[in-house]
Amino acid sequence: MTVYLDRFHFPDNVSEEIFLSNEERLKATCYSSVYPFTLFFEKGLEELKFEPVTFLYGGNGSGKTTILNIIAEKMKIQRGTYFNKSDFFDDYVGLCEQHTINSSFSIWRNSRIITSDDVFDYMLAVRCVNEKIDIKRENLFDEYMETKYSSFQMRSLDDYEQLKKNNDVKKHTFSKYVKRNLMGNIREQSNGESAFWFFTENIKENALYLLDEPENSLAVELQVKLLKFIEDSARFFGCQFIIATHSPFLLSMKESQIYDLDETPIAGKKWTELENVRSYFNFFKEHEEEFK
């Protein structure tokens, strides 16, 4: 299994304090936030070491998405959607350091960060396509019924196309007629299926992928399928993943590293030790008899 990003260093408390004390722009009253400075002060975050698959776990506001964005900006990893950076984001990124191995231009060219916005935009695009198809289907229904019950007679070669359409209608049921005329455009997928398809289409070989809560929009069975896809991509196709997630199904992945960002200091954990996972376990344990 492959590692491209081995370690990532964040500015320590001293470096942050020096920057904040000397930064002229801080004297301007228009800046009410120095994010992402001070976000990890109490957590003692100075370095993360990565495996072929590494999970960032934590509640809302724990900083897991921020870490992905910091890494992406430092390494200039490509994005699908616009990232609205805060005023001091680039300054913070400038104080960070990455340590890479097995790297090449092609790896970084193919690497990318995939956010919920990317997946949502894709699902929205699929929905728009389907809506256009629905409109065309309605038009085809009107066309089918009008043609089927018309008293058409061919009078010249100008009527040849209409004759072909009449014959096509007579040879097929409405459903077959519609499928023939919509073939190549039909995408009969749920939002979850579209989201899963997005990951399988955009994750290629030999690259680093930063995934921000990929479980969003995925039902349990699709989360399990995504788990297997990520495992296979890391094991057989030279991919490395850093994933921010709450999903107990993804977190159960074998041979992965998990960082619990709810801990102070941030600590490595087994998936069975995580609070969210323990909550699931305790809930089903309480209802164990109902499953028998």
Rank of each mutant, 00 (worst) to 15 (best):
P248T: 00
D232N: 12
Y160G: 08
F236D: 11
E161W: 09
D91C: 09
A28Y: 14
Y35C: 03
K164D: 13
E16H: 02
T272W: 15
R235S: 12
Q98W: 15
I67D: 01
C96F: 02
K225L: 11
G268Q: 13
F237Q: 05
F199L: 06
S247V: 01
F141W: 13
Q162A: 11
N139W: 09
C239K: 02
P36R: 05
N60H: 02
L124Q: 14
F105P: 11
H9I: 08
R25A: 12
N139S: 11
Y122F: 10
P214E: 02
V126F: 05
I133Y: 06
S151K: 15
N84G: 14
P265G: 02
L48N: 00
S247Y: 07
I230P: 01
S190K: 06
P52A: 02
Q240A: 03
N84A: 13
I77C: 04
S252E: 04
F19C: 00
E47Q: 11
Y259K: 02
S21E: 14
R79W: 08
D212E: 05
K43P: 00
C96K: 03
L222P: 05
G61L: 01
G94D: 05
F120N: 14
G61F: 07
F141C: 13
W271I: 10
I107K: 05
Y209H: 04
I186Q: 09
Y259N: 00
T29F: 15
Y280K: 01
F105G: 14
D159A: 00
F283C: 10
P248V: 00
E290S: 09
I18M: 13
K74A: 08
F8A: 01
F199H: 09
V220F: 12
W271H: 12
G59L: 06
V224T: 10
V169I: 04
E73V: 08
L56P: 05
M253S: 04
I266Q: 10
A234S: 03
V129I: 14
F105R: 14
C128D: 15
F249C: 05
S15M: 11
D158F: 12
M1Y: 08
A267K: 13
F281W: 12
E231W: 14
F174A: 09
S116Y: 09
E221N: 15
A195T: 09
D212R: 07
R112P: 10
K254M: 02
S104A: 01
Y209S: 03
D6F: 10
I258A: 07
Q78N: 14
G238Q: 03
C239A: 02
F41R: 13
E17K: 13
K64V: 06
Y35L: 03
S279D: 15
N202I: 00
T81K: 08
I135Q: 13
R79V: 05
G59S: 07
E23F: 07
D212K: 05
V53K: 00
E255V: 06
Y280H: 05
M1A: 04
V93G: 06
F105N: 14
P214L: 00
Y160A: 10
K228M: 13
G61I: 03
V53Q: 00
N60W: 02
V3I: 03
D212P: 03
S15K: 11
